[in-house]
Design a protein around this nucleic acid. Structure first.
Lengths: 249, 249
DNA sequence: GCTCGCCACCTGTATGGACAAGCTCGGCCC
DNA sequence: GGGCCGAGCTTGTCCATACAGGTGGCGAGC
């Protein structure tokens, strides 16, 4: 019934205790020895558990002092950045998708570099509008290399989660991604599809995703409508998890 | 001469090897057993070293398969998000700062929550312009609670690194931060100081910083001039380090 | 009453051993 | 030739132990 891995079980128990308010912000956690005794585990296993919370930014840790609760709101950023749909579902919201256009083209110079293909190699360009609870919030301009393009074309136009479908269909795993975040003014197409005025500020995320062995799968220019999605970063002395967050209404 | 901690020594060695191209993207790293033998360390120590690279997004790891290089460009994001000045210096650029205004006020409702003080409690508001290589790139609107305000006021107007000075003067450590990133249009003041037109898109980072024991030190609304700074996130199956990056010129 | 120093406690680092689970690749069988 | 399978390698998990170094609080001494 409980998870198979002991350290995850302990980590979950601590996460729950923090979320429940048993350890409010500023409180100190039990020592490793106490936790080990309470869970019938060794200190090494307990350390594995608390290091997970440390990486999530929930707690702070200094040598010699007991660990301190820094935040009570978890940001389960592990899989969140990988898929818009998975992130939306985790937050209890419904994600929609709609392919506006899809066509084969040749790789531009910068795209060739990002996708590790020759300049002029065939690539599939897809323009996709993403919605959250029915509202358009994100316009994706994605470029796929030749080897994966056909599988993408085979997807239905209103596919909810591309990541999930590609995994189901081809076993492909999006294991690694690099994201560059900045702000740009909305162009004509952006304004039209996201229903705002030209020149409005947009949050732009340029990202490239690769498989577990480092092969690029896609590169994309994503533009978020402001006020709908916020990126959250939590950084402690050692770590910086990141999550996408819905703005408070 | 080498670092005292063995696992850091091994991690540095691997980082260097990856940066030098000895392990290009897609290459596999030696097994834990081989690394342990090569460095005369135990497997546990080697695991500690590679887990650091994993957290930095440099390598990927799956049970049963050898570790794979995912990226060759390190993002030493540890301390980077903590201080604008420290980040700039790490990149070989010169950071400047200038206090435009500084005055005591009462805490607004949302600020009171972020700083964990009563509504209406006295707070210090500081408007600060940051420059990179002489160019204005960032406008900070920072709010400090009463207990730290005087120390901030005592700083020189053109203080380069507030974080560093506060540490030197009071021993205060900024241990933990939460950042919310979105895009907004430039207001009148933003446009004037950052030298662009009103309505131009700006990258906004709202952040709250706390000490190691969770006490809020400051909350701030930072607006970055686009084209000057990009936030970079790297996320693997397990981890997402984040870094601030200068745009290529 | 204040400070300084000592000491128990706690976390960081490192070792070594054991087993489980997953991947790779070569060889075998069809 | 092609597909299946298993042996060996590799990483994940867990344990017990030891010592170093930082923290924090108590008490002695001024």
């Amino acid at each position: 019934m409980p998870e198979p891995r002991r350290h995850e079980r302990i980590a979950d128990e601590l996460r729950r205790a923090i979320a429940d308010g048993r350890y409010p912000v500023g409180a100190t956690l039990p020592s490793e020895a106490e936790l080990a005794a309470a869970h019938g585990a060794s200190r090494g296993t307990v350390r594995q558990a608390v290091s997970a919370l440390l990486a999530e930014g929930l707690i702070g840790s200094r040598q010699g002092a007991r660990r301190v609760v820094l935040s009570t709101t978890p940001s389960q950023s592990f899989t969140e950045l990988r898929s818009f749909a998975q992130w939306a579902r985790a937050g209890g919201r419904s994600a929609g998708g709609l392919v506006l256009s899809s066509s084969w083209d040749v790789a531009h110079t910068d795209e060739a570099g990002l996708l590790q293909v020759r300049r002029g190699a065939p690539v599939l360009r897809v323009l996709r509008l993403r919605t959250l609870d029915g509202e358009p919030v994100l316009l994706e301009r994605t470029v796929y290399p030749e080897w994966i393009g056909p599988a993408v074309e085979a997807l239905p136009d209103d596919c909810e989660s591309v990541t999930q479908r590609l995994y189901d269909d081809t076993g492909l795993v999006f294991a690694h991604g690099e994201h560059h975040i900045d702000a740009v003014a909305a162009g004509t197409a952006d304004a039209e599809h996201l229903r705002l005025r030209r020149g409005s500020p947009l949050l732009r995320v340029r990202r490239t995703t690769t498989t577990a062995d480092g092969r690029p799968v896609e590169t994309s220019d994503d533009r978020y409508r402001p006020g709908s999605v916020v990126f959250t970063v939590r950084n402690s002395t050692q770590t910086n998890p990141l999550a996408r967050t819905r703005t408070a209404t």
